[in-house]
Each structure stands twice: as C-alpha cells, then as structure tokens.
Amino acid sequence: MSSKRFTKDHEWIDVEGDIGTVGISDYAQHALGDVVFVEVPEAGREIAKGAEAAVVESVKAASEVYSPVSGTVTAGNAAIVDQPGLVNEAAEGAAWFFKLKLANPAELNDLMDQAAYDAYLKTLE
C-alpha cells in the first residue's frame, strides 16, 4: 500500500521521517503531455502549504506545482531539470520535484490517500 498522499491539484508527497518528497501525479503528467521544461526550488527556500514551489511545462501548457505542505526545501531534483522527459516516464518515482523538511506534519491530514485520490480522479472523467 502506497504511503503517498495527494492534492486536488495533482501533487503527491511521500514522507519518511520529517522529510517529504513531492512530485506530480501520473495523471498530471499524462494530462500535460510531453514535458519540455521544469523549474524546481533551491535548497533552503521556505515554502508555505499551497504556495507555488515549482513549474512544469509542456509544449502547449504551463502549470505551477504547489507545495502540499509547509516546510523548508532540502533539495530540488536536478535530473528532471536536465531531462524534463523523465517526468513523463516516472512521475511518481524518480521524477520527483523537490524534498522538504516538514514544518507541520499535521497538514498531511488534509491530503488524500491513494484510494481517495483514485476516487477523485473518477469524478474528473
């Protein structure tokens, strides 16, 4: 069972200890199409829950990636900056966007688990 939690804007976060890894869902990468450009935050940046943290672009669409929780960025994923196509290949795995140290783990409770997210996606069809 996945430990990932999801937002309605299609970000996911996976938490280990007090560090969360954030990315966009497979549904989101599919909706965007071929990803051509990614911008990730630098380590040390403080981000509030729901704030713009990263950017992802395809040929015909641009989208902000919002942070699912508040915290301090510990790393941005340089691999997807160099190879944006990775986002299409492994959105919920190697193509994570950034890691952050959680400021308030209780915020996780506002997010959907995999089953709730799957049910949410059904409502979008």
């Binding site: 672009e57 395809s58 040929v59 015909k60 669409a61 641009a62």
Partner: peptide, 12 residues
Amino acid sequence: LSTREQHIRREK
C-alpha cells in the same frame, strides 16, 4: 517556447 506567451499563460 510559447508557454511564456499570453495565449497560454494569460495573466502570468
């Protein structure tokens, strides 16, 4: 690189 432009990014 059209994502910079108004027809995609609108007010941004």
